[in-house]
């Protein structure tokens, strides 16, 4: 469903190339983990997929269900079912979480030519997903991410994902900064969303998350491309050995 081929991208302002021919295919129902050293370009990849315009794609292409993804606005990508849980979710002062969720749901439905969600249906949906993620009424009433702890922000992003029900979910370090219980909660939230139609790309530094969310594939992003791919055992190997082999490969 998501097909990235030979993607080259640089930072628009400074021209430094970050992605140098990255290819990855993700099929429905699959869970792909992407690991890799700091600064390798994992977030860059996630942002490019979501449509942030700080980057310039110089070569290659990305297709979602066969359609060119890179020509679409971020909101159009969202409406087609792409979701990014941010490494650093953004604070939106003055906009209540609940209002925001409803605006987002309806914006996507409108873009897909569907009718607006009814208020009772919406409330039921949010209540169900929020309770799974142990998010209380108080957090729903507050302004989006404002004054939330690091872990609360991450859970709030996962709540948005659960409510929006995308088909391709990209999680950028959704586990970092989470305490042990929160990690479990987030993992349970993700697992509850797993389905044969939905795929996940999970960017993480730690094997621990992958104990809870079992990946089908593990990839190492290094030197601007997927330097190595394997099964869950690759994560264990990285945990033991680090990225020394890849740094040499990249150098």
């Amino acid at each position: 469903m998501l097909s990235i081929s030979n993607l080259h991208a640089r930072i628009a302002d400074e021209g430094r190339e970050i992605l140098k021919g990255l290819s990855l295919d993700v099929n429905p129902g699959e869970v792909h983990a992407i690991m890799g050293p700091n600064g390798a370009g994992k977030s860059t990849l996630a942002y490019i997929l979501a449509g942030k315009d700080d980057y310039e794609v110089t070569d290659g292409e990305v297709r979602l269900d066969g359609d060119d993804l890179l020509g679409l606005e971020p909101n159009e990508r969202a409406a087609r079912g792409l979701f990014l849980a941010f490494q650093y979710p953004v604070e939106i002062p003055g906009v209540a979480n609940m209002t925001f969720l409803k605006t987002a749901v309806n914006a996507q439905r409108k873009a897909r030519g569907e009718t607006e969600i009814s208020t009772p249906d919406f409330l039921r949906l949010v209540r169900e997903k929020a309770s799974l993620l142990k998010i209380g009424q108080e957090m729903l009433r507050r302004a989006v991410n404002v004054g939330f702890s690091g872990g609360e922000k991450k859970r709030n992003d996962i709540l948005q994902m659960a409510v929006l029900q995308p088909k391709i979910c990209i999680l950028d370090e959704s586990d970092s900064g989470l305490d042990i219980d929160a990690l479990r909660i987030v993992a349970d939230g993700v697992n509850a969303l797993r389905s044969p139609e939905r795929a996940f790309i999970i960017i993480t530094h730690y094997q621990r998350l992958l104990d809870y969310i079992k990946p089908d594939f593990v990839h190492v992003l290094s030197g601007g491309r997927i330097a190595r791919s394997g099964g869950p055992e690759l994560a264990l190997e990285l945990e033991a050995k680090g990225y020394a082999d890849f740094n040499e490969a990249a150098a």
């Binding site: 909101n75 990508r77 969202a78 939106i92 906009v95 925001f100 987002a104 996507q108």
Partner: peptide
Amino acid sequence: MPVFYLMSRGLPRPEAEALLIRS
């Protein structure tokens, strides 16, 4: 950054900006 965040959740740019201006 907030504009991109809102757009990534499905809001077209004018709506994203409107939300931020209202706030």
